[in-house]
Design a protein around this nucleic acid. Structure first.
Length: 407
RNA sequence: CGGGUUGUGGCGCAGUUGGUAGCGCGCGUCGUUCGGGACGACGAGGUCGGCGGUUCAAGUCCGCCCAACCCGACCA
């Protein structure tokens, strides 16, 4: 992509914000605020989010997930039927349309359960595992911290339907390990943390938390086992166990729940077992905040010059600057692009210094600089965003070197 | 919802005791520059969040409303 054709409204001056992610992502041209907790996602953010989603997608597929796209609009009547509408806490976070008969989806247990009824009659039809990337709407009492707590946000939500508790728990564990793989692939060190199951389950739920001083959750963690407890279940921890734990601030990037048959029963979603007996379906729900992940990563990976995004998440792989007065930059750009690399070629008429500053701000992992000096050697300077030093690489070897960096 | 701060060209801000709006950045043209947000000249761009009030006169004072941000209660 040529920068002259790319829409990235970087700012020299951005309003100071309390959250680093909101400040940096706005300054680097990834997002634009629309209202409190509501952001427009600009091309840089879209590219990063697509990469995040792809990692999540691969891992969800690996545990048998079927990708779907449900509607954001949901009839209010289904919420009344599930009994959730009676829950005042829940009702107050739901946006509802003017005619008061459709809600803007805050979560999708109800429509998923209803849809699955079309197919499931027998134990032979189970399990069913559906997931989607969806925009969720939640009227947060107080939206804050940029992408960390929005009123409209992207979420991957997966719903599982199993014939009994045993098969459900087996799947639940495979989902938990898939979650850990997702976070690892995105460069995050996530802890599996016990939390209260919520209103609908007596069992603990599991949260996936990333330690971050600016996070709003407080958890107790065991660094050896990468597990821990949310503050809300602190009372349940034994004294012996408590000694091994450290209290830290963290950001919740995922959460998985046992739902039992609360929703399936509400919609009379049942199946016949081998003995011809009508049985309840056991459900689970599994969420990952996609936009929140981008916020978390920005919160964690930056320096005084801007974002330092992990390779798997950055919107481009390389940022190319041509300081020669020739067309050599275009040539290198074409070569690398044809080789499949994602290159942002800064072909704008700007002082060199300004380009360096923006390259750092946007946080692309590799910076390539073609200068009269390197040109004479048929080479290009290569510097990784996370490093202070640069190396000179022969033009004919750039692809090989990039290949290695991104392998 | 309670408490606090703020709202002035695209962005970041200043504007004394009320007198008809200013700075930096960015933007356009020309020239000089060209490895860490260059420099000069000329130029375009705002009626000051909204409504109402006080006054000869309101960005400045008063009232109401709206919005954003921060702290708190609630939450992927």
């Amino acid at each position: 992509m040529k920068f002259s054709e790319f829409y990235a409204p970087t700012k020299r001056d951005a309003a100071k914000q309390d959250s680093v992610n909101a400040y940096l992502l706005a300054k680097a041209g990834y997002i634009s605020q629309v209202a409190a907790g509501v952001y427009a996602l600009l091309p840089l953010a879209v590219r990063s989010l697509q990469k995040i989603e792809q990692v999540v997608r691969e891992e969800m597929n690996s545990i048998g997930g079927n990708e779907v796209v449900f509607s954001a609009l949901q009839p209010k009547s289904t919420w009344e039927k599930s009994g959730r509408w009676d829950d005042e806490n829940f009702r107050q976070i739901v946006y509802i349309d003017q005619d008061a008969d459709m809600t803007f989806g805050a979560t999708h247990e109800e429509p998923m359960s209803i849809a699955v009824k079309e197919k499931v009659q027998s134990y032979r039809d189970l399990p069913v595992i559906l997931y989607q990337f969806q925009t969720k709407f939640r009227k947060e009492l107080r939206a804050k911290s940029g992408l960390l707590r929005g009123r409209e946000f992207r979420m991957k939500d997966l719903y599982s339907f199993h014939p009994d508790n045993e098969s459900h728990h087996e799947f639940y564990e495979s989902a938990a390990t898939a979650y850990l793989r997702v976070f690892k692939r995105l460069g995050l060190d996530a802890y599996r943390v016990k939390a209260s199951g919520g209103v609908f389950s007596k069992e603990y739920s599991d949260e996936f938390q990333v330690i971050c001083p600016t996070g709003e959750d407080e958890i107790l963690v065991n660094h050896k086992t990468k597990t821990g407890f949310n503050k809300e279940v602190e009372a349940d921890i034994s004294v012996a166990e408590k000694d091994k734990l450290e209290r830290v601030k963290a950001i919740e990037v995922g959460n998985i729940f046992h739902l039992g048959s609360k929703y399936s029963d509400a919609f009379d979603l049942k199946y016949l077992n081998k003995d011809g007996v009508r049985k309840s379906i056991v459900m689970g729900s599994y969420g990952i905040g996609i936009t929140r992940l981008l916020g978390t990563i920005s919160e964690l990976f930056h320096d005084q010059n801007g974002l330092v995004l992990p390779k798997q998440v950055a919107p481009f792989q390389a940022y190319l600057i041509d300081l020669t007065n020739s067309k050599d930059g275009v040539g290198l750009y074409n070569t690398l692009t044809k080789a499949g690399f994602e290159v942002l070629f800064d072909d704008r008429e700007m002082p060199a210094g300004a380009k360096f500053v923006e390259a750092d701000l946007i946080g692309i992992p590799v910076r390539l600089v073609l200068s009269p000096k390197t040109k004479a050697e048929n080479a290009v300077e290569l510097k990784e965003r996370s490093s202070d030093t640069s190396t000179v690489v022969l033009l004919k070897e750039v692809s090989k070197v990039l290949e290695k960096i991104f392998s």
